[in-house]
Structure formats: structure tokens, C-alpha cells
Amino acid sequence: MKKIIHIIGRLNYGGAEKLLLDLCRKIDKEKFEVSVIVLQDENPIVAAFEDAGVKLKFFHKKNKFDLGIIKRVANYLVQEKPDIVHTHLFAGDFWGGRAALRAKVPVIISTKHDVLSEGCWRNCLGRRIRRRFQKIIAISKATQEHLIKVEKVPYQKVQVIYNGVDVNKFYVAEPQIFKRNYLAIGTVGRLSKEKGQKHLIRACRFLRNREWKLVVVGGGPLEKELAAQARFLGIDEHIKFTGFVNDVRPFYDEFDVFVLPSVSEGLGLSIIEASLAGKFIIATDVGGIPEIVTNNETGLLFRPKNIEVLVQHLEWVNNNKREAARMALNLQREVLEKFDINKVIKQYEELYLSLLK
């Protein structure tokens, strides 16, 4: 049995943590023993990992200058003797990666979950450490391009493995959309700057048809600011903010059009979930999103922050519901085939074993 230890900064709300949880839950337990090192405190979704029976080791990193974390983690890795250390996000890559190198772990890999610039010094440090890993997994071709062109990672070290979701949780066999007497819009994700929810709220202000509702699912640092924006624009009665929820699935029943207005995105797991639920997709054409949605064929895309085009897309859906439903069904079929988490896990298992040969 091969021992895999994942390292991540925090267990927060996000696609990286979703993938990590799925890897821990669904990997073949007869072939792999899996555990997770968490470097920092404030872990809002730790209960999900505990409920899944995932072995967790916390290191309570004191602050960004806590250099001793490298030695503490390295000592633990020497004791545990993992075959592979798999890091996630900047903290996992930099602090966890340095510890794994110090402990002389045989194989060190990382999954790159986004194409965000992490700031000049973080970009430099992350780039230097990731180059010393045996393999970096990109969650989309856009992420792969970022790694090769921006971070200068050698092409042969990068492998694309798309993120996926548990299709059985979200798939609706015969979706019934556009049965309401109003335009039902929704978005799901962490309420943060890069997710761009404020642009969607502004766009709704300009809809000619006043019969619309928007459901904003998720929590995050901008929750109060976005609610205040809705009040300032005089449209707060049309908008429902759910706050953080453990299970987003019930909320997909509350809307027909899913909008992801992200300024930056690695892939867009929420698009996959919404599509499986049969929703029509409108999203920005950033990161890996065009690898999921084909503009004017399986959904509608627009440039980030382009509120005028977003309004036009929403108006088009409201006036062309039959065509929109057909496009939504086409995307659902594609997503069902391409983004099944069980296929994703299989690819990771094959990668782990190939690196240990």
C-alpha cells in the first residue's frame, strides 16, 4: 500500500478543498493510505473531512514568518515516511513543499487550482519551489498554459487533470427549467472579489423585465458589502443571500439560469454542478471556463466586468427560453461524460502509481 500525504494551508470554502475531500473519500483504500496535513488555523470545513474519516494533522502555523513550520512538518514527514507528498495552493506548495524536500520524500507533486497572480513575491517563491517537484497537475488547459508561459514550468512536468464532481449528487435526468413566471437567476460560490458577484448584481439592476429574482448562494468576506450594494441599488427585495451552506444542491431548484461572473477562475466547478442540474449557463470567458462552455452552443460567455453584455445575455434567455433549454441539455450531456469525479480519481491513482515506478 502506498502512503499519500496531502498538504494544504487551510480547509476553506473552495474548489481546491472540494477536490482534496473527494480524493480522500474516493481513492482506492486497498492501494493508497491517505492523510492531510493542515498548516494553519481557521478551518471552516474541517467537519466535512472529519465526517469522512480523513486523518488530519494540524500544525497551527503562528504567522507568515513562522519559519519553524518547515522543520516541524519535515520531522513529521520523516516519521511518517510517505511515498508521495501532494501539495495544494500557495501555503501547501511553499511551506509544505520545502518541508517535503527537507525530509527527502521520494515524490512531491502539486495541483495548481487557479490562474490567479499571487503577488510578486509569492509568484517568485511559488515558481521556484514548484520547479523542484516531479509533477504539477493543472486543473484546466488554461492553468497548464499559465504554468508553462508565466511560471516557466517545463512542459513535461505539467499534466492536465480536470476537476470533477459527484455526478450522482447533482444530475437531474429530465430537468424542468423556465416553468416560472419570472426570470430565476442564481450564482454559487465564495463571496470574494475574484468571483465578481458585484457585477452580476449591477447587471440585474438594468434588466428591462422587472419580474426577476436572484439567489446568491455562499458566504465569504464580501457578504455584507454585496448585501449593502443591493440595498443601495434598490433591488434588495429581488435578491436572496443564503450565506454559507453545507449543501448547495437544494438551491439549484430555485433558479433556471446560472451565472458565474468570475474575474479569474481555474475551471469553475459550480458551472459543472449547475449544468448537471440542468441549468442554463452564462459565464465569463476566463481560465478554464471556455473548456466547459462553448459560446452560443452550450451556453453564453462574456468578458469579465462587461455588464452590458451580461444584461444582453440575460435578456436573450428571457426571450428565447426554448432555445436556451436545448442548449442547457446539450451542455449537461457533455459535462456528464467529461467531469465525473470517479474518472478524475482514477486519473490521480494512475498518476501516483506511474510516479512510483
Score class of each variant (00 low, 15 high):
233 L>P: 09
65 F>Y: 14
260 L>G: 03
206 F>Y: 15
348 Y>R: 09
75 N>C: 10
72 R>A: 10
32 F>N: 11
131 R>Q: 15
320 N>E: 06
58 F>I: 01
230 A>M: 11
103 A>V: 10
290 P>K: 04
3 K>I: 09
352 Y>R: 07
109 I>K: 01
200 L>E: 00
289 I>N: 03
1 M>V: 14
101 L>K: 13
62 K>R: 14
276 L>R: 01
230 A>W: 02
112 K>I: 11
139 I>Q: 09
37 I>V: 08
86 H>T: 14
131 R>M: 13
46 V>G: 02
324 A>R: 06
198 K>S: 14
325 A>K: 15
73 V>E: 07
324 A>P: 12
237 E>I: 02
29 K>L: 06
357 K>Q: 03
257 V>I: 15
284 T>V: 05
147 L>H: 06
164 G>Q: 04
235 I>D: 06
35 S>M: 12
189 G>Y: 01
89 L>E: 11
113 H>C: 07
114 D>A: 12
279 K>G: 12
290 P>T: 12
157 K>A: 02
280 F>W: 09
162 Y>T: 04
286 V>Q: 01
82 P>W: 05
126 G>M: 13
105 V>G: 05
241 F>C: 00
38 V>C: 07
137 I>Q: 06
181 N>I: 02
38 V>K: 03
340 D>G: 11
294 T>N: 02
119 G>C: 13
288 G>P: 00
53 G>R: 04
50 E>L: 15
218 G>Y: 11
282 I>G: 07
217 V>G: 03
248 V>F: 08
236 D>R: 05
282 I>R: 05
177 I>D: 08
342 N>W: 04
29 K>W: 04
114 D>N: 09
43 N>T: 07
353 L>K: 14
294 T>A: 12
308 E>T: 14
121 W>I: 15
119 G>Y: 13
286 V>H: 00
77 L>H: 07
164 G>A: 03
311 V>Q: 01
349 E>A: 08
212 W>T: 06
181 N>H: 10
8 I>E: 07
74 A>F: 01
193 K>G: 03
223 E>R: 08
54 V>Q: 09
208 R>M: 07
102 R>L: 15
227 A>P: 00
134 Q>G: 07
88 H>A: 13
180 R>Y: 05
71 K>L: 13
228 A>R: 15
107 V>W: 09
329 L>V: 02
206 F>L: 14
168 N>Q: 11
294 T>E: 09
65 F>W: 14
252 Y>N: 05
259 V>M: 01
104 K>W: 10
173 A>N: 08
71 K>G: 03
51 D>V: 09
42 E>D: 14
250 P>N: 06
287 G>I: 02
318 N>C: 07
323 E>H: 15
275 S>T: 12
321 K>R: 15
83 D>L: 05
219 G>C: 14
147 L>G: 13
22 D>F: 13
298 T>K: 02
47 A>N: 12
112 K>R: 15
296 N>A: 06
253 D>Q: 12
31 K>C: 12
37 I>P: 02
331 L>A: 04
230 A>P: 09
292 I>K: 01
246 N>R: 12
321 K>S: 01
289 I>P: 00
322 R>M: 13
296 N>G: 00
321 K>N: 02
224 K>R: 15
19 L>Q: 15
174 E>W: 02
90 F>C: 03
255 F>P: 01
17 E>G: 10
165 V>R: 03
154 P>L: 10
